[in-house]
């Protein structure tokens, strides 16, 4: 499946781009699978996502857990814990 990925804060800086469209292999089923797949795409992804337990993910702009399936996702946001307010 093809999906739009959007990155924020230090995830964006380390990957080196704000967004991209990516074709995902069928083996990528959950959010956790996606993060693991991304780390295989290069050093910059590895550097951004080396501690996946701290990474937050949103599917179609709603928070998602790492064991959630990504089927049907149009846009997946990947970012660090939030620090607004």
């Amino acid at each position: 499946m093809s999906v739009k990925l959007v990155y924020f804060a230090w995830v964006r800086e380390r990957i080196g781009k704000p967004e991209e469209d990516l074709d995902l292999p069928t083996s990528v089923v959950t959010v956790g699978d996606l993060l693991a797949h991304l780390t295989t795409l290069g050093e910059e992804y590895e550097n951004a996502l080396q501690f996946p337990e701290v990474i937050r993910v949103a599917i179609n702009q709603e928070h998602a857990e790492h064991d959630e399936p990504i089927a049907g996702a149009r846009e997946i946001g990947i970012f660090p814990p939030m620090t607004g307010g």
Partner: peptide, 21 residues
């Protein structure tokens, strides 16, 4: 809002350097 609204703060140091998130 602090824990679930998607905002992030980056520091700009007084000496002009871009600081940390």
């Amino acid at each position: 809002l602090k824990t679930s609204a998607p905002f992030w703060k980056k520091e700009h140091a007084a000496d002009g350097r871009q600081g940390d998130w």
